[in-house]
Amino acid sequence: MSFATKTCRTRIKLNRKVFGYPYILFLTIFVVLPLVLILVNAFIADGKLTLHNFVAFVQSSNMKVLLNSLIVGVVTTVCCLLIGYPVAFLLNKYYRNSVMVLMFILPMWVNFLIRTLATRQIFEWMGVKLGMGTVLVGMIYNYLPFMILPLYNSISGIDKSYIEAAQDLGADNLTVLLKAYIPLSLSGIISGITMVFIPTISTFAISELLSDRQIYLFGDSINDMFMKSSSYGVGSVMSLVMLALVLISNFLMNKFGDKEEESKGVW
C-alpha cells in the first residue's frame, strides 16, 4: 500500500508542477523575448551588427537629457526622503496602524495623469511659471507616497528593544536616530529610493505637462525615439541604459534589504 501511495504522490507532484508551465511559456514570450529583441535591436543598424547605435546615442542630445534626468531624479529622491522619513517616523510613533497612515498612501491610487493635470491647473491659477521648479514639485508630489510606504513599513518592523537598549546605554536622540533607526530601516530607505528614483527619470508626460514641453526627461526621449522618429536602434540602446539602472538599483535593494521583507511581496 505504501508503494502505491508513493508512486501516486510522485505523479501528483509532477502534476502540480504542470500548472506553472503555461505561465513560464507566457513569461518567455511576452517578457523575456521582447527584452531580447531590444537587446538585438541595440546592436543592429542598417541590417548589420555594429556598435553604431551606441556611438549615435553618446553623441546625441539624448546624453544631455539623461544627465538632466539623473539630476531631476536625485533632487526628487532626496526631497522625498527628507520629507518622507520624518513623516514615516512620526506616523509610526503617534498614529501606528491608524487611518492617518492610510491618508498618506491613498493618493498613489489616483491616476498620476489626473493628479499632474490638477497640479498644473493650480500652478497656472497661482501664476507660477511652468519650468524646472514646477516639474520638481510635481515629481515630489507624485512620488512622495511611494517613499512613505516602504519607510513606514520598515520603521514599524524595528524591534523596539534595540531602541530602548540604545537609550539605556546613554545615547542621545540624534545618536539613536543615526545609529539605531536609520541602519535598522535601511531596507525601507533603499526600496523607497528605488521606487522614487526609477519612475522619476523614466516616466513620461509628467515633465512634459508641467513644463509646457520645455523639459525633457529620459522617459520622454525613449518614447519619442520609438513613437516619433522610429529610430529603434538608438531607442533600444537608451532602453538598455534604463534597464541597467533598474537592475543596479534592484541589486542594491536585494543586497541591503532583509530577505524576509523581500519574500513578503512588493508593496
Binding site: P34, L35, S202, F204, F226, S239, M242, V246
Partner: peptide
C-alpha cells in the same frame, strides 16, 4: 521592477 517605458517599448 522594470521601468514601465522600457516594458512598453519592448
Amino acid at each position: 521592477i522594470n521601468s514601465e517605458v522600457v516594458m512598453a517599448v519592448s
